[in-house]
Write a protein that binds this DNA or RNA. Structure first.
Lengths: 107, 107
DNA sequence: TTTGCCAATCGTCGATAGACGATAATTGCG
DNA sequence: CGCAATTATCGTCTATCGACGATTGGCAAA
């Protein structure tokens, strides 16, 4: 159980920064892939943004594959499953099982 | 929008620690109120636990009212609404509006 | 009032996170 | 091959977090 808690804490930590939330919103709003445009959007140094991307990737929230000279980032929402499940447990003790199986699915 | 992101980041930060997750689980499993039993359960020093409780209370995730010589803590899951909403947006881009209005309600 | 218990606060320490500039590494183009 | 563009990594600095012991404050019972 502590094992799961550590995993959930890691996920929460990945979301615990405004810049990373902004990056995720940006990835959500971008249909295909996205490269260094992120740097301009968040207004931080390139190295700082790269570090945030690394953290998100380490948490599994995003995926990054090298596509030529640039890197293609994409969302991986399924990774947030354990965290979403935990929050559901807290917010809806009786209706934890809603209508979407949001802990495993998604392409 | 950055305003909301900061709020969500604060909520995520409140969940970004195994000890705090454990405390929340404990509060969830405890029907009524709970006092210093938390200290025994998490296995940390009393001052450390008190600090975690303070962080959770500052984030609005729990409420604590003084009840005689001890303090009564209780969950306040509604506070996690913005975070839950954000995660839903990521995990279910097309089905963001599920069947539960989990951003405002709850007693 | 005095004593004892429980919780909050203070001060301190080490560890970690966040930001930056500078510096590589890799790819595509001329 | 050499150059420009893009991203990752390194080193450094500051700020914050997490844990602890010690102390303070409040409340109830003796």
């Amino acid at each position: 159980m502590q094992d799961t808690d550590i995993e959930i804490a890691e996920l929460a930590k990945a979301l615990a920064h405004p810049a990373r939330l902004r990056i995720l919103r940006l990835l959500l709003a971008t249909p295909g892939c996205i490269g260094g445009d992120i740097v301009d959007a968040v207004g931080l140094a390139q190295s700082t943004v790269s570090e945030h991307l690394r953290i998100l990737k380490a948490a599994g929230v995003i995926t990054g594959e090298i596509s030529g000279p640039r890197t293609c980032y994409a969302l991986n929402p399924a990774a947030l499953g354990p965290l979403a499940e935990f929050i559901s447990t807290l917010t809806a003790p009786s209706a934890a099982v809603c209508c979407v199986p949001n802990d495993k699915e998604l392409s």
